[in-house]
Design a protein around this nucleic acid. Structure first.
Length: 204
DNA sequence: CCCTGATTCGC
DNA sequence: GCGAATCAGG
């Protein structure tokens, strides 16, 4: 694929919108994020700043080291190996403390009748009708393709959204790839983290 | 490990 | 000009 005007235009657009290089690459197709980044630089728009019309900006970049007289320096291929010193390197193997593995918190699902074995008080949960319809639709859709993992099968990168009633047979965890950072997949992040006041704040 | 952008450099 | 490889964070 080559950088046609259209593709460059889309690149510029998406980049200015703050899309990541990988997202742009995906959209364009036929290029890697590296290609996108490379192009971005060549186009000289690597600096995504200057959004608001504020005249002053440029928070002063870091002091870039000037390049005195060593444009290209080949890798230090040759080893000096001067003295015949026996390189006895202690090589201290720092032992890392084991990180305590945290248990994954288990969120409640929408389908809870009112009975959880020990009869715990139900944790407060945003009522279903306050979640955007689209988000719910997506969740319902996703639950069909969920990987339906058991508790033991969950990993750091599997969606930990529970589906079904823990007290019944059909209970599982979504298991789809999580959204970076979050404990849930994209769809479930959508219902888990609501942009507060989603409905009331409609206008603005 | 997943991701990000930045840079280098052979092509 | 192009972009893989690599680097440097988060």
């Amino acid at each position: 694929m080559s950088w046609t005007d259209e593709r460059v235009e889309l690149l510029k657009k998406m980049w200015s919108e703050g899309q990541s290089a990988s997202q742009i690459a995906k959209e364009l197709g036929g290029v890697t994020r590296n290609a996108v980044i490379g192009k971005v630089h060549r186009l000289g728009l690597s600096n995504r700043a200057s959004g608001g019309g504020s005249a002053a900006a440029a928070p002063a970049a870091k002091a870039k080291e000037a390049k005195p007289a060593a444009p290209k320096v080949a890798k230090p291929a040759a080893k000096e190996a001067p003295a015949a010193a026996p390189k006895a390197r202690p090589e201290p193997v720092a032992a890392k403390a084991e990180e305590p593995k945290e248990d994954t918190p288990i969120p409640m699902s929408a389908a809870r009748k009112a009975i959880i074995p020990a009869g715990q008080p139900l944790p407060p949960q945003p009522s279903t009708n306050e979640i955007s319809p689209e988000a719910l639709a997506r969740v319902n859709e996703v639950e069909k393709t969920a990987k339906k993992l058991s508790l033991m099968e969950l990993t750091e990168r599997t969606c930990k959204w529970p589906v079904g009633d823990p007290a019944t047979e059909h209970f599982w965890f979504c298991g789809l790839p999580v959204q970076q950072g979050k404990p849930y997949c994209e769809a479930h992040v959508g219902v888990a983290f609501q942009p507060m006041s989603a409905r009331r704040d409609r206008r603005r």
